[in-house]
Design a protein around this nucleic acid. Structure first.
Lengths: 348, 348
DNA sequence: TTGTAGGCGTTATCAC
DNA sequence: GTGATAACGCCTACAA
């Protein structure tokens, strides 16, 4: 074959065999180089390999390596709602850890749809992911159990699923909500409407609810009954419940609490539509801080979850498991941060 | 080997050989089944295979398939800033198309850091991705060129890079900005401060700037000189430029325009700090709508980009290229939507 | 310090 | 309709 004046462009992606041939050594030696086993290579050879690798722009094929080693060096991440800032922040935390350890992330988004979730789990299995971090919809227990039986480490974020006992990383919802509730009581609110999407199957929502009613119960506060569960897709139901609360509390100092960011936004929108001023006519607060929270009215009082850290810790946990950690399941609850702004002024 | 009373848990992930043996056929037949080649299989065999596959919970190993076929069935997505809602919306659009076609996405986030970007590109190459969608930092020209030489289809979103001619999908910044600028002039603003991160290397920012000064130039409007470029990490510089504009325009009807969401937030924060009321003392508007925009003050006038669609189109383009499309590069500019709210009232 | 050989799970080619 | 067999690119005994 005539190789004079070949253009620089390689005819195909270089393989380990190409590098070996070009460097005048065997594939084994190249493989040793790739796995960092430098001490079994003479320095002269090492230099030659380095040059050849960069010259050929060689990139080890992860599929081949994965097939041989029976591990993919990828971690799956399944989010219930990727457009939620909560998710992207978790994603970033997880990614930083993941990349540092030489793993890649396969990411997907279920839109809270159990069927999509099921399909994605199957896809993850086909990829032979080494571990999974999941923000679960709460409806695919069996499949996740199967995965665990196949020895794939799974870490849940934000939520746990009843009857499944895996590693968990999330916010300390109970303490965060307790602290916030005590603060609201201290501000002198006579009525606090607690709005949340359904508790069922979603542990984090339930924990917030629990903490709320316990603090109010201890204080003998009437709002222990001001609990409003609504379906996110049922706007009429939401409006009706809100109107009910507004009517009942009309002559009292009052506020609304939203159990998550979506709810917070819905409440603010609805109040605006009704011409109710925040905080003059009614206070408001809720879970999840946002970069916009400081500039909404006089600023929104919010509970900021340690999302980036949740991502980090979840990924660390998965990697520990992959590394062989067999300790009992852990449930990490990270502290949240109550950020007091102008939307919950004192009524004393 | 004694196989009586084996527990249901499989000793290892089932392979095509396991399925073949259990179904009493050859690996070839199973493979035919997997690739949907049903017409070369007798119906009796077909039924048997189906049963066996679900019984053994068999999932074809993507790494093995990829190795053999020299394609990974994965698309890489590299975002400059995943925490930006723009990115997550694009992500969702891309994902829906991707999944429907049987591909998976490998996602990462460069934080606008060219070094991270470089490393991620290398990772993508190691994964042998079949295509790449990238929101580029603008600093890794050469590497992307190499990738293209290796016949990997690349689609840029939001930005193009000078000197590189690949498929592009983004917003029609020019027309969107023109329309908005004309609207502001119609509202009677005497001074409009245009704030943007540096134009250099970022085509989308430059297009917005161009449209702005052209419309103002044609109208003989003085704000053709009210252009302020600032570095996002240099708060002092930002504040100084803002103060300069505020001082110069003190006795005029005036507004601020932010070339993207981050800038919008910074401006609103800074105005609040200075005690300037929106829109009474000064109007404001900018690129990128947000779910919070309607509830900031009397509502923010924004330019909403068709982000979900950008993701869809970008993924469609990549898949077309993978499918063998050799047509010249295309540059798709999708229409944006000017949403008029209370932050830019008429001053006439 | 270096090399040989075999196999990971799949698909493609060719044969019956 | 069905099957045997040889790769794909890499890693890992085992040898030398």
């Amino acid at each position: 074959m005539d190789t004079t004046n070949q253009p620089p462009k390689p005819p195909h992606k270089a393989t380990i065999a190409d590098v070996a041939k070009a460097a005048g050594v065997s594939k084994t030696t190249i493989s040793r180089y790739l796995s960092g086993d430098y001490k079994s290579i003479s320095s002269a050879t090492l230099i030659r390999i380095k040059e050849t690798v960069s010259e050929l722009r060689y990139r080890p094929n992860r599929m081949a390596r994965g097939l041989r080693q029976d591990r993919s060096y990828s971690i799956g991440m399944i989010f219930a709602d990727i457009s939620n800032p909560y998710s992207t922040s978790v994603l970033r935390g997880a990614e930083d850890v993941c990349t540092n350890q030489g793993y890649s992330m396969i990411v997907c988004n279920t839109d809270n749809d159990p069927i999509k979730e099921k399909n994605y789990i199957a896809m993850m299995q086909a990829h032979r992911i080494d571990g999974l971090i999941i923000h679960p919809t709460g409806h695919n227990k069996e499949i996740l159990e199967e995965m665990a039986e196949d020895q794939i480490p799974i870490v849940f974020i934000d939520r746990t699923i009843q009857g499944l006992s895996y590693d968990t990383v999330g916010t300390d919802n109970y303490n965060a909500m307790s602290e916030a509730a005590r603060f609201f009581l201290g501000q002198g609110y006579e009525r606090i409407g607690f709005f949340s999407q359904p508790f069922q199957n979603v542990s984090s929502r339930y924990e917030r609810y629990q903490a709320f009613i316990e603090v109010l119960g201890e204080a003998g506060h009437p709002s222990i009954n001001d609990i409003y569960e609504f379906e996110i897709r049922n706007q009429d139901q939401f409006e009706a419940k809100l109107d009910q609360f507004l009517a009942e509390s009309a002559d009292k100092s009052r506020m609304l609490f939203a159990a998550n960011a979506v709810t917070q936004l819905k409440l603010i929108n609805a109040l605006q539509k009704r011409g109710l001023r925040i905080p003059d006519d009614i206070g408001i607060s809720g879970f999840d801080d946002s970069e916009w929270a400081p500039v909404i009215g006089a600023g929104l009082t919010t509970i900021e979850q340690p999302t980036y850290e949740i991502g980090q810790k979840a990924m660390e946990r998965v990697l520990e498991r992959i590394g062989g950690d067999k300790s009992p399941e852990s449930h990490l609850a990270l502290s949240a941060n109550l950020i007091i702004r102008g939307s919950t002024p004192s009524r004393n």
